[in-house]
């Protein structure tokens, strides 16, 4: 950390707000070499850089676990908060209410979200808090050395040979069912798909859930696990090819007519989806649920943008908050006037 006002001039390209990619980097990772979470971090850095998110506007939040460490590994100069286990959603909700101008990026894991934090996950979605909610999903508790999480598939085998006997909680299926305004699934090794999804999530106003399958190299990358690199590569069904065109770039080109769905996002930008199968319409909630369930019944992972509703009011809108962040309001805006105060007390006399 440094107190210098301006970052040293960096060589190389800069984004549209004049910031080099270096500024979006964080501390060196302390996760295992080859961890899927590190790939996600790299894609995040790329997406934040390309979307030109002002680093000081970014607020990173997380819970507890391997995944939750990741917020230290990108945009070092931004504020970050590593909450208690499973409680990232409530911290994120509070911070967004205090300062609606913050770009909230929350990172959680499958244990953090689908077990201890399941309640807060559900209610964050229900309130449609404006944030990007990334679940780095490996189906295993890495930090405590390899116990199953609730997203582990039934029948999958632990490193020590134990078989998971319980149904999986599908983070995306649950989000769709709860009425989430943006639900997507991707894979940590698929930057081509993940980066546009992340950029769409930043642009989306409301809760954007991104379940990113992220193989654990130490405890889950073995035969028998359904979240290993090899398994996912072999069973990944790509739903759409995505291209994200921000509002500040004028020209949108080269997408075949008749095979696209255009989603207009609240910052004015549009997301163009190129479908592999024309049967999936991401504005159709029932269809989203169906592809998730059908994919699972076939033992396949469906990736892509499952559902989006860019019009759904977010929490700040539902709370009718003013444009000025609440935390910037002072005595004049917050206290009763002396007259109103005296009048109120007179009613109590």
């Amino acid at each position: 950390m440094t107190a210098t006002a301006t970052p040293p001039p960096a060589a190389g390209p800069r984004n549209r707000i004049g910031i080099g990619r270096e500024t979006y980097k964080g501390l060196p990772t302390t996760l295992c070499a080859g961890c899927g979470h590190n790939s996600i971090t790299n894609h995040l850095i790329k997406a934040l850089y390309e979307s030109a998110i002002p680093p000081h506007r970014l607020a990173k939040t997380s819970g507890i676990g391997c995944s939750s460490k990741a917020i230290a590994y990108f945009v070092e100069s931004a504020h970050g908060l590593n909450a208690v286990h499973g409680r990232m959603p409530s911290i994120t909700t509070g911070a967004k209410l205090a300062d609606r101008e913050l770009v909230m990026v929350g990172i959680s894991g499958d244990g953090d979200t689908a077990s201890i934090g399941l309640g807060q996950y559900c209610h964050l979605i229900r309130r449609n808090v404006d944030c990007t909610y990334i679940v780095e999903d490996n189906g295993v508790y890495g930090l405590t050395k390899g116990q199953f999480s609730a997203t582990a598939d039934i029948g999958s085998v632990q490193k020590k040979g134990q078989v998971n006997e319980f149904e999986t909680i599908d983070i995306c299926g649950l989000a769709v069912e709860l009425g989430a305004s943006f639900v997507a699934r991707s894979f940590s090794g698929d930057g081509k798909q993940l980066v546009p999804l992340l950029r769409a999530a930043f642009a989306h106003r409301g809760t954007a859930v991104l379940d990113v399958i992220s193989p654990c190299v130490t405890f889950n990358d073995h035969e028998g696990s359904t979240k290993s690199y090899e398994y996912v590569k072999a069973h990944d069904t790509v739903l759409q090819e995505l291209d994200f065109i921000p509002a500040d770039r004028e020209i949108v080109v080269d997408y075949p007519e008749g095979t696209t769905t255009t989603v207009r996002l609240h910052d004015g930008s549009e997301m163009v989806l190129r479908k592999l199968g024309p049967e999936h319409d991401p504005s159709d909630r029932l269809a989203a649920l169906r592809v998730v369930l059908e994919g699972r019944s076939r033992g396949e992972l469906v990736t892509g943008l499952l559902y989006v509703d860019p019009e759904m009011a977010d929490l700040t809108e539902r709370e009718r908050l003013p444009q000025v962040p609440l935390r910037d309001l002072g005595e004049a805006e917050l206290r009763l006037s002396p007259d109103a105060f005296a009048q109120l007390l007179a009613e109590w006399a």
């Binding site: 409530s90 911290i91 994120t92 909700t93 509070g94 911070a95 967004k96 205090a98 300062d99 609440l326």
Partner: peptide
């Protein structure tokens, strides 16, 4: 949690 999150962000 919301209270702490909001106060962390300055409200």
């Amino acid at each position: 949690g919301m209270t702490l999150g909001a106060a962390w962000a300055g409200a």
